[in-house]
Design a protein around this nucleic acid. Structure first.
Length: 788
RNA sequence: GCGGAUGUGGCGGAAUUGGUAGACGCGCACGGUUCAGGUCCGUGUGCCCGUAAGGGCGUGGAGGUUCAAGUCCUCUCAUCCGCACCA
């Protein structure tokens, strides 16, 4: 027996898999495509630096599922690619020099290498990268389709502006109101921005959550992010100015209690309602105040001097301006009901405004004219009906979700295929002119305008309609656009006349198992759902959800901090070099349930290497034993069958990956204690076969040691014999008053009387039977509990 | 403030349907083998009392349901996460 040499074994089998393209799957013509197919996908990596232990967990998990499904006869699509546009490469180029493309491709090569030496079963023939023109060609094409159908549009909107870096920042790059890079206080600035109309899909995104198998907490995050609330829009008339101000409320039943009215400081209504300098200056100061300060509990505000009419009772109520009203939500104005809304109540107290209670302790309306006495739920409808009849209101639904702003004033992203013409406005680049290639620029640093704007050759382009000089859009797309459809491109990655073929996409999609971090719950996972729904409506795909089943792996933490590219962490390469990929794979999954966070400690790795070496030795010993006869029935054989059952159920139904390792360890322990057992060969083969998805290299090698020439990775998963799980004798637990007093071996299947008799016969039980027997509970083949 | 998750030995965790708490592994202790060993093998290891037999206690805390609770119910504490003046 040679010593276990992880490196040699891993290189050997990785070479075989590559030479045989073992994990490549073909697209069949629709008629003869295999029925049993499975689309396994993990979120694609962002190529900044190299992979960290969090990735190792993510992709090893996916790898186990891939092998497990393959060996159950499924044709498994398991592709890989790179989210290769984005700020980090650009920032690295600014900071250290070099080109974002070079930096990105260097990192990609490092990651491909890591993926290869981890031995992951990936179909590399389907690799896609966001920054390749052959990919972003179709990102641009999809943008044009969305634009054509009104799902992509341009409008003025507030953005996070860093006055120091002279650029817009994404929300996640604003930390405590400051720029993450230079620390300058971020300002709100209005700029023309491109948006996707994700709000048009708010209801669909909510409703279809019921059709997908996702963790409840993720559904909850999306639900609260979309933030649907039902209520009414009510018009408040300002007679002097002859205007109606709409407000949104979820509590129209409290309308009679509206004793004042408040508008947001940013609201254009402020100027209309008042020219008083005190009011205007309050509004200016309040609007400019950072959000944090606005959230401080003490209410501020100023009376405009104007009144509006409560539509339901004609009361003249004062109009105030206060920064507790948000311009972004509802209509930027609200009816204040101090008796039944905590915030309105605080405001009323601060400024000594009247409070009228309109709901009694019994939940029925009071002080509400003709609606008095109605339960408030009924009144809610009745009042809205009454308002509708009067033309003063209507039922309304509001969402917290806003349209997705995807313009980025940065270089390293997908160009937006638009030309601005003085005459024709924003004109889409014709499909035949795609892709609009990302050009070279002299300097990636944004200086008040996006880097692309400085490239005259790029920026000056004729209007596609009239041919007169126009200017290209200089913004690039948010990288979340790239990742909103990459999983579709994988199904048909080489297509050069369309993003993908619908029939092929419909065949593979939706993804059967998606694995990635929960941090993408309201970003990538929501955007991708929106894309698929929109594409379905445009007739491009035949399904409405991209990810049928979703799993979130936990974080790998180092000293309490999440390992990530920015935080650094433990280098997988070094670990592979020292312990081998198989040991790392088994180690990372053995730490605990995969959806729980792992605190990194190097201690356990030695142990997993020790286990592999033990397996190596025990299997070699077993290989010297004669072939196990079919149907061999020994305790070791039974243990093997039990292990097959446990491992299969854990991976398949329970989706847990740590306990199967423990189960196989038990089997290997049993085997090492009974090397001469006639079932030794069988037990060894079972252990190796069950471990194959976890440790594919050493499993393959040991499969050969056991005399097989077949490819274990292609073989059917073992099945257990149900009859081998039945035990002839069982351990019967004997309790007195619920406390365990004895355990005895009895034949399985004894009748209750017999079990009771045997329980009473136990000396240890008798020692505690000093009172009158009141009751005896029997769980057959398990326990007897005597109550005295 | 609202919503959610988690809490089990010295440590990571197991216990799937209310039925033996602590599987498997780390660590530790003792013994053996080798001896250059940070190798390998074996035994033990929840806590307390006891030489032992045995007994008591024990799943963040307090109550409850039940013959029986880590598991179900009520309250509570701690940690983490999400949302947060959303009308």
């Amino acid at each position: 027996m040679d010593a276990y040499d992880a490196k040699a074994i891993e290189r050997k089998w990785q070479a075989v898999w590559e030479a045989e393209q073992a994990f490549h799957v073909e697209n069949h013509s629709p008629g003869d495509a295999p029925d049993e197919h499975f689309y396994m996908l993990e979120m694609l990596p962002y190529p900044s630096g190299s992979l960290h232990m969090g990735h190792v967990l993510n992709y090893t998990l996916g790898d186990v599922v891939t092998h497990f499904r393959r060996r159950h006869g499924f044709t498994v699509l398991r592709p890989m690619g790179f989210d290769s546009f984005g700020l980090p490469a650009e920032n690295a180029a600014i900071k250290d020099g070099g080109h974002p493309l070079e930096i990105t491709e260097r990192n990609m090569e490092a990651i491909r290498h890591q993926m290869r030496i981890m031995g992951w079963a990936i179909d590399w023939q389907r690799e896609v990268s966001a920054h390749e023109p052959t990919y972003y060609h179709w990102t641009q094409w999809l943008f044009l389709k969305f634009f054509e159908h009104g799902l992509a549009y341009r409008k003025e909107a507030p953005v996070n502006w860093c006055p120091n870096d002279q650029t817009v920042l994404a929300n996640e790059h604003v930390v405590d109101g400051r720029c993450w890079r230079c620390g300058a206080v971020v300002e709100a600035r209005n700029m023309a921005q491109w948006f996707f109309k994700i709000t048009a899909y708010a209801d669909a995104l909510l409703e279809d959550l019921a059709t997908i198998d996702w963790p409840e907490r993720t559904k909850k995050i999306q639900t609260s992010w979309i933030g649907r609330s039902e209520g009414a829009e009510i018009l408040f008339r300002v007679e002097e100015l002859d205007i109606d101000i709409p407000v949104f409320t979820t509590r129209p039943d409290t309308l009679f209690g509206a004793t004042f009215f408040v508008i947001a400081p940013e609201s254009p209504l402020v100027q209309k309602l008042s020219d008083d300098e005190e009011v205007l200056s309050y509004a200016r100061v309040a609007a400019a105040r950072p959000t944090e300060e606005r959230e401080q509990r003490k209410k501020t505000g100023v009376f405009t001097g104007r009144y509006t009419t409560n539509p339901v009772n004609g009361a003249q109520i004062p109009i105030w301006v206060s920064d507790y009203v948000l311009m972004e939500y509802g209509t930027g104005a609200l009816m204040a009901v101090p008796a039944h809304d905590e915030r309105d109540g605080e405001f009323a107290e601060e400024f000594d405004l009247p409070v009228v209670s309109v709901i009694g302790d019994d939940g029925r309306l009071i002080n509400s004219g003709e609606f008095d006495g109605q339960p408030f739920e009924e009144a809610r409808r009745a009042i809205v009906d009454w308002l509708s009849a009067q033309g003063k209101g209507k039922p309304a639904i509001h969402y917290r979700l806003r349209d997705w702003s995807f313009s980025r004033q940065r270089y390293w992203g997908c160009p937006i295929p638009i030309v601005y013409c003085d005459e024709h406005g924003a004109v889409p680049v014709p499909e035949s002119d795609l892709p609009v290639l990302l050009p070279e620029v002299d300097d990636y640093r944004p200086k008040g305008q996006p880097p692309l704007a400085s490239n005259a050759e790029f920026i000056n382009a004729p209007c596609p309609i009239c041919g007169k000089p126009g200017r290209r859009e200089a913004d690039t797309m948010d990288t979340f656009v790239d990742s909103s459809w990459y999983f579709l491109r994988y199904t048909d990655p080489k297509n050069d006349h369309a993003p993908f073929d619908r029939e092929i996409a419909d065949y593979w999609m939706p993804i059967d198992q998606y694995i990635g971090g929960i941090d993408h719950a309201k970003g990538h996972l929501l955007y991708s759902r929106f894309f698929v729904k929109a594409m379905n409506d445009l007739g491009m795909v035949g399904f409405r959800e991209p990810f049928q089943r979703l799993f979130h792996q936990g974080w790998v933490r180092l000293e309490g901090k999440r390992m990530s590219k920015s935080q650094g962490g433990v280098s997988p390469n070094e670990l592979i070099d020292r312990f081998g990929a198989d040991a790392i794979r088994i180690y990372i999954l053995f730490q605990g349930p995969a959806d729980q966070d792992i605190d990194w400690s190097p201690d356990g790795i030695e142990a997993t290497v020790r286990f592999i070496r033990r397996l190596w030795r025990v299997v070699h010993e077993a290989a010297l034993r004669p072939e196990s006869p079919p149907g061999v029935d020994t305790p070791l054989a039974r243990k093997a069958h039990e292990t097959i059952a446990r491992v299969s159920d854990d991976i398949d139904r329970r989706f847990v990956f740590n306990t199967p390792i423990a189960a196989v360890m038990e089997l290997v322990n049993e085997l090492s204690k009974a090397p001469g057992d006639p079932a030794a060969r069988f037990a060894a083969e079972t252990a190796v076969s069950l471990l194959q998805p976890y440790t594919p290299h050493v499993a393959e090698e040991l499969w050969g040691v056991l005399g097989h020439t077949s490819r274990l990775w292609t073989l059917e998963w073992p099945t257990h014999d149900e009859s081998m799980l039945q035990h002839d004798t069982i351990e019967l637990v004997l309790q007195v008053n619920g406390k365990v007093r004895d355990r005895i071996q009895v034949p399985a299947g004894l009748p209750e009387d017999e079990l009771i008799a045997r329980a009473r016969a136990s000396e240890r039980v008798q020692a505690h039977l000093d009172g009158e027997e009141r009751r005896v509970i029997v769980v057959r083949d398990k326990l007897v509990n005597i109550v005295v």
